[in-house]
Simulated assay, not measured.
Amino acid sequence: MNFYESLGFLVFGSRLRRLSESFLADVNDLYKHHKIKFDASWFPVFYILSERQAVSIKDISDELNISHSAVSQLVTNLQSKGLIKISKAKDDGRKKVLTFTSKGNQLLQQVKPIWKALQDSMEELINENKDSRKVLQAIGGVEQGLQTASLFNRIENKLKN
């Protein structure tokens, strides 16, 4: 048993971060290997735009359950690279809407085959171990539990007892 396994839930966050960092590094290495100038951190915005063609920063923030500020930073980065453009919504001039530029659309076409291969590879990986098949459901359960009560509040309650 390795260090992480021996400590169980005490290092749960560290194990998830380590797994996430390894996953994202491999995906970014794959983009580089195929000479595609794309960063895995852009995926959520690119994917949402690929499905809807036009979307507001607020809609992305709500869908991803992250702050408006975090989405704005990512959008600013993508805009500076010429991949997306921001314009006013036709129905509400106060609302800003994101769309792909032609450069962004070209990049989207390059990354779609990577996304498909990634999906297929992850399904293959998950199917290699019967316990792994439950990982997404288990993560969803943890996320739902944290919406009920944050880890901070759960720990504070234990410290009070």
Rank of each mutant, 00 (worst) to 15 (best):
R17N: 03
R17T: 11
R17I: 07
R18P: 00
R18F: 05
R18Y: 00
L19A: 15
L19Y: 08
E21V: 09
E21R: 04
F23P: 08
L24D: 10
A25L: 11
A25W: 00
D29Y: 11
H33L: 15
H33C: 14
H34V: 03
H34E: 14
K35T: 10
K35H: 07
I36N: 07
F38R: 04
A40N: 10
A40D: 05
F43N: 13
V45F: 02
V45R: 01
V45W: 00
F46L: 03
Y47F: 11
Y47K: 15
I48G: 10
L49I: 06
E51V: 11
E51R: 13
E51F: 02
R52A: 02
R52Y: 02
Q53S: 15
Q53Y: 01
A54S: 09
S56R: 00
S56A: 02
I57T: 09
I57S: 07
K58S: 10
K58R: 08
K58N: 10
D59P: 07
D59T: 12
I60M: 05
I60P: 05
I60Y: 01
S61A: 12
S61V: 00
E63G: 15
L64Q: 04
L64S: 07
N65D: 13
N65F: 09
A70L: 08
A70M: 05
V71T: 00
S72H: 10
Q73W: 06
T76K: 15
T76H: 05
N77Y: 02
L78V: 05
Q79A: 15
S80N: 10
K81A: 14
K81M: 14
G82D: 02
L83T: 05
I84D: 04
I84N: 07
K85H: 05
I86D: 01
I86T: 13
S87P: 04
S87G: 14
K88F: 00
A89I: 00
A89M: 00
K90D: 06
K90L: 14
D92P: 01
D92L: 01
G93D: 03
G93W: 05
G93N: 12
R94C: 08
R94K: 14
K95P: 01
T99M: 06
T101P: 08
T101E: 03
T101C: 08
S102Q: 14
S102N: 15
K103G: 07
G104H: 01
N105T: 07
L107A: 09
Q109W: 03
Q110W: 02
V111C: 07
V111M: 01
K112A: 08
K112R: 10
P113C: 03
W115G: 11
W115I: 12
K116H: 12
A117V: 03
A117S: 10
A117Y: 02
A117F: 06
A117H: 14
L118F: 12
D120P: 08
S121F: 02
S121Y: 12
M122E: 11
E123D: 14
E123F: 12
E124C: 13
E128K: 13
E128V: 00
N129L: 06
N129I: 09
K130R: 08
D131L: 15
D131T: 13
D131M: 13
S132K: 04
S132A: 14
